[in-house]
Simulated assay, not measured.
Amino acid sequence: MTRRYLEPAMTTPGVEVRLHETILYNSLYRFDDDVLVNPHVLGAPAGQNPVLHFRYIPGGRSFRHYMKSFDYAWERGTSA
């Protein structure tokens, strides 16, 4: 479903989408120094769960914490 929503953006210069087979407990969407985190709650579709917005702040920990997970999946992903 996400791929269908992102399809129009996939041909935009500077936009990159990758697919992976890792198990995630969040959907992560990175935009430069911002990351949107959609936590997965068992039994509820993603659209019924909150979206958390984290911005990179020097010395802050939340953005870097989620980016470690993002980078792990990104490095193992393949171009869509």
Rank of each mutant, 00 (worst) to 15 (best):
G14W: 02
E7N: 11
L52N: 03
E16Y: 09
L52F: 08
E75V: 04
Y5K: 14
L6N: 00
R64H: 07
G47D: 12
H20A: 03
F70V: 07
I23Q: 14
A9Q: 04
E7K: 11
M10N: 00
V41N: 00
R76I: 06
N26W: 03
S79Q: 11
V51Y: 09
Y5E: 15
T78H: 12
A80N: 07
H40G: 04
M67G: 02
R61F: 05
N38E: 05
L28W: 01
L28T: 03
R30H: 01
V51P: 05
N49T: 15
Y72R: 11
L42A: 14
S69G: 11
W74V: 02
Y5A: 15
Y5C: 13
F70C: 04
M1Y: 13
D71S: 09
P45R: 07
L42G: 07
D71A: 03
F31I: 10
S62D: 12
A44Y: 13
H53E: 06
V15E: 05
W74E: 05
R30N: 05
F70A: 04
M1P: 11
V37M: 01
W74H: 03
A44P: 01
Y72L: 09
A44W: 15
L36W: 05
L6P: 01
N38M: 10
R30L: 09
T22Q: 13
P45E: 07
G47Y: 10
T12S: 06
M10G: 00
A44C: 10
P50W: 07
R61H: 09
F63M: 03
R4V: 12
A73I: 11
G77D: 02
R76V: 04
M67F: 02
L6D: 00
G43F: 06
G47W: 11
A44F: 15
